[in-house]
C-alpha cells in the first residue's frame, strides 16, 4: 500500500514518518484551539512528523515536528487532520 499515497488522520501516522496535511476538519475543533494550531503553522500544506506519543491510554498526547518546532497536541486535534504520508 505504501507505493500509493496512503491517506490517514494524523493520530494514525507512524512515528517519524514525514507527511503533509491535506485537509483539516476545523469544525471538529474549538475555535481557540483551531486558531492556536494555525498560529503554530499547523494548517493545510504543512509538512509534519510525529516524534513522540504519550504512554497512557490512547497514546495521548502527541509531539509533532513542524518546521524547526516541536509542538505538543492532543489526539482529538490530530484526529481532525487528514495527512498524506510522503
Amino acid at each position: 500500500m505504501d507505493s500509493q499515497t496512503p491517506l490517514m488522520t494524523l493520530d494514525a501516522l507512524p512515528l517519524r514518518r514525514r507527511a503533509q496535511i491535506t485537509a483539516v476538519d476545523w469544525s471538529a475543533l474549538v475555535d481557540e484551539e483551531a486558531r492556536r494550531l494555525r498560529a503554530l503553522g499547523i494548517d493545510v500544506g504543512a509538512q509534519i512528523t510525529v516524534s513522540h506519543r504519550g504512554i497512557f491510554a490512547g497514546a495521548d498526547p502527541l509531539a509533532v515536528q513542524i518546521g524547526r518546532m516541536t509542538v505538543a497536541l492532543r489526539r482529538v486535534h490530530a484526529r481532525a487532520m487528514q495527512v498524506e504520508a510522503l
Binding site: 474549538v30 481557540e32 518546532m69 505538543a72 497536541l73
Partner: peptide
C-alpha cells in the same frame, strides 16, 4: 472552551 493542550516545546 478548554485550550486543550497545544503547546510549543
Amino acid at each position: 472552551a478548554a485550550s486543550g493542550f497545544i503547546m510549543e516545546m
